[in-house]
Amino acid sequence: MNTRSHYIINSRTSALASHFELGHEYTRVVQGHEVFIVRQTLEEIVRASFHYYEQSLEGAIHLARKILKRSDYIPIALSAAHNLILIRCKAPNQDGIIWLICSQIQEIHRYRINKTTVVLKNGPSIDVDIKVNTLQDLLGLGADLCSALIQSDSRKTKSYFYDPKKGIALVWENGQLNYIVKRNKEDDEDLDMVLK
């Protein structure tokens, strides 16, 4: 099986699953017809992907909870513009996690009482430890989340708060709070240009 050292979730990604080999945790990636191993943990890939799309995992979870008005077991948006809505499931053997990309799911079937087989577009099927009805609900919530985010992007605004005495600029955007800490006069000039 092919291996890679790094990976970023993209529009061709179908699923990611924990993969254990010689006492190390890696990630098995399904991308279209391809299946390969990435020598990063699932968490490393997910966090790097959120960083790539200029947000944080925690911010995406907070925003999804706010939009869907639910506190647990929710899909999260990596990028609504690219239709990358992720659902986190347990592996059927309870050894690890599987992240599914909603837009890459073709159909789902009951595998056992609390397990589901997920048939992916252009790829293999994956078994997950979740009831069919629960996964179906999460897929519906994922579609709602994506629609809400795309609608809010059309009305997107940023709020800036700047405290020159403390040297901190705060940016509130899309339900996330970001900040910049000035370190020297050049940073101050760059920050002034951004805030104008």
Score class of each variant (00 low, 15 high):
V171R: 09
R183T: 14
K165C: 14
D192N: 15
L63Y: 02
G175E: 06
S125I: 01
A81Q: 00
D190E: 14
L57M: 00
V119Y: 05
A91L: 14
K196L: 02
G167I: 09
E21I: 11
S5Y: 15
K156P: 00
D153Y: 10
R110H: 09
Y160W: 07
A17M: 03
D153T: 07
Y160A: 08
E58V: 10
R28A: 04
G59E: 04
H51K: 14
R110S: 11
M193K: 07
D190M: 15
T116N: 13
T116G: 13
Q31C: 13
D137Y: 12
I9P: 03
G96E: 01
Q176C: 10
Q104A: 14
P124S: 15
K69E: 06
Y160C: 06
A77V: 05
I113Y: 09
T41M: 11
A80R: 09
V118E: 09
I74M: 10
R39L: 06
E25I: 04
R70T: 03
T27D: 03
S71T: 07
I180G: 08
R155S: 05
I61H: 13
K121R: 05
G140K: 15
K156V: 00
E189Y: 11
D188C: 07
I76A: 14
P164A: 10
Y179E: 02
Q136N: 05
G123Q: 04
E107P: 10
V171T: 05
R65N: 07
R39T: 06
R39D: 01
S79M: 04
N2E: 05
L22R: 14
L195Q: 04
I130P: 02
L86Y: 11
R88Q: 09
V132I: 03
F20E: 06
E186T: 12
N122P: 02
N184Q: 11
I67H: 00
G142N: 11
V29Y: 08
N93T: 08
L16W: 00
I85E: 09
F36D: 09
E186D: 10
I74K: 08
L86D: 06
V46F: 12
D129E: 05
V194G: 13
G59N: 04
N178K: 15
A15G: 12
T134L: 05
D127N: 15
K165E: 15
Q176F: 03
A17F: 01
Y179T: 02
I9W: 10
L145G: 01
N83L: 04
I76W: 13
I45K: 06
R28F: 01
I37P: 03
S125D: 05
K90V: 03
D188T: 03
A64M: 03
V38Y: 02
A77E: 06
D187P: 11
P164R: 12
Y160T: 02
K196C: 04
D129T: 01
S49D: 05
M193D: 04
Q106L: 03
D95M: 02
D188L: 10
K158E: 10
Q151N: 08
P92V: 01
K66L: 07
N133F: 03
Y162P: 06
R65Q: 11
N83Q: 02
L195K: 11
H51G: 12
I126G: 00
P124H: 13
G123D: 07
Q104T: 09
E44H: 08
E34I: 12
H51F: 10
H24D: 07
N184Y: 08
D137N: 14
D192Q: 15
A169W: 12
A81Y: 00
A77L: 08
L57D: 00
I126F: 01
H6M: 09
I130V: 08
I108L: 07
S147T: 04
K185V: 06
